[in-house]
Design a protein around this nucleic acid. Structure first.
Lengths: 104, 104
DNA sequence: CTGTAATTCAACCATATGGTTGAACGACTC
DNA sequence: GAGTCGTTCAACCATATGGTTGAATTACAG
């Protein structure tokens, strides 16, 4: 679900905004030419992906970044790291020459 | 576009399959309980995201992994690395204590 | 030339997504 | 209690997505 949450530029922007500190939903929504309710839906998607935590302060909902899913996503991408650290364009030759073996 | 391409488990599976070497579209489609045309659409999404390259061999289209967009995605995620290398649960306190300063 | 395998394309369908508006709710201000 | 601010919710809309089927294309095999 994390990748889907990250697929939208508005949501990535909100994460960047939260990187600077806690923000209310209204503060998160403000930079976007979009209704409050529309932006709140994006917040809900981020929350569903576990990327933000919320705490109630008076009538405001303060959101903060939860990086754990980002760490998992990065971990997943690391699987492929060898494909760009090794010369990419030679890799297919390596695999064809030794289809049963390991690339390293 | 990369994150959107990675958001679907079928497409992630296809990438994993391609990590083992070139595959035709039919070979990529075979593991999935889905029509050929349906799977071919996923391949097209991956291609649109620049995650696979294709070359024609006879009547088959051989697909191979292009890792560059994955590397970019990982690079993007690295922006947030400090949020999970620092103690996550203390971070919000740090930011609240020094709202104008840097976390490090 | 015929047939078939791998792919492409177009049409179609159901549901999800990204957005809107407007009404309702809970908490602070006066 | 009345007003208002921040938020939530429900209804609605247009378009995108993920899937289907069937017909058309292309390349090889006989």
């Amino acid at each position: 679900m994390t990748f889907h949450a990250l697929a939208d530029p508005t949501r990535r922007g909100m994460l960047a905004s939260l990187a600077l500190g806690e923000k209310s939903i209204g503060e998160l929504a403000e930079p976007y030419a979009m209704s409050f309710a529309g932006a709140a839906k994006h917040v809900k998607v981020l929350e569903g992906a576990g990327l933000i935590a919320r705490r109630k302060v008076g009538r405001a909902q303060l959101c903060s970044l939860r990086a754990a899913p980002l760490a998992e996503a990065q971990q997943w991408l690391r699987q492929w790291e060898r494909f760009w650290t090794l010369r990419l364009d030679r890799l297919e030759d390596l695999l064809r020459d030794a289809p049963e073996g390991e690339a390293e």
